[in-house]
Design a binder for these strands. Structure first.
Lengths: 123, 123
DNA sequence: ACCATATATGAGCAGATGTTCATATATCTT
DNA sequence: AAGATATATGAACATCTGCTCATATATGGT
């Protein structure tokens, strides 16, 4: 039987040092499709404009104008980002006449912002 | 006194519909520097290769070879991403001879992955 | 019907990001 | 010391992202 450092198999053409461990992890991993969606979800938090919008909505319901003024950014830029946030189901909107109000979708958004904040604060 | 829809002020040159609300949110917002760092932190989770690495390390300590094999990606690609994860203090490493083992840095990583997973699972 | 206001969206562009390829560094073996 | 192995890193490149600008849509007021 070959040395484990020479082992190559279904996983890839690179050597594996701990084949058993890798195999075990492989079986416990969620499928790639799910992990892709998870990354896409986090990607939405990975932009300072969107984080600032989420943080603002954490405190109060706001319309696009308000967010524009608050963040000193063009209405178009804010609208584009709100579209991304809506698609990721992180915010929801309601119309009142010409004005559209945005709020956070649920508690998960706040939880994630909080855990991130904690991590940054611990040095 | 001007109509509130005509109000322009220190925030921006766009009209604000709810000046008081905006002012109140403005005062409660963390400073931009912090929000930038927060976004940078989440950005690290926003790539499927890195999420897969984190998910793998969630289950077991692994070396670069193992991750390479597990994810069917080049050693170089994995190494580059581990560098990003190290810089964000999401993983730590220990050397044992030629081999370098990676593990998750702390509980925050798991918490964030868990909250994200929850959010995706609720339809 | 017409104009103003609030928001959304498509195209285009500049800057960021992730991979590959080549190579460097570090450790172990002989 | 020389070679093999494990990892790290810089440059180059193709793709993705977020903004601007122009324009479209929707609602309200006159």
């Amino acid at each position: 039987m070959a040395n484990s450092q020479d082992e190559h198999d279904i996983f890839c053409d690179v050597p594996m040092i701990h084949e058993d461990r890798v195999r075990s992890v492989y079986e416990s991993m969620p499928d790639d499709d799910f992990l892709f969606n998870l990354a896409e979800f986090f990607k939405v938090f990975g932009d300072s404009t969107r984080v600032r919008i989420l943080c603002a909505l954490h405190h109060s319901e706001l319309c696009v104008c308000d967010l524009s003024a608050l963040l000193s950014m063009s209405q178009s830029a804010i609208s584009h980002q709100l579209r991304v946030l809506r698609a990721a189901r992180l915010v929801k909107s309601r119309r009142e006449g010409k004005v559209i109000y945005y709020t956070l979708m649920d508690e998960h958004v706040k939880q994630i912002l909080d855990v991130g904040t904690e991590h940054l604060n611990e040095r």
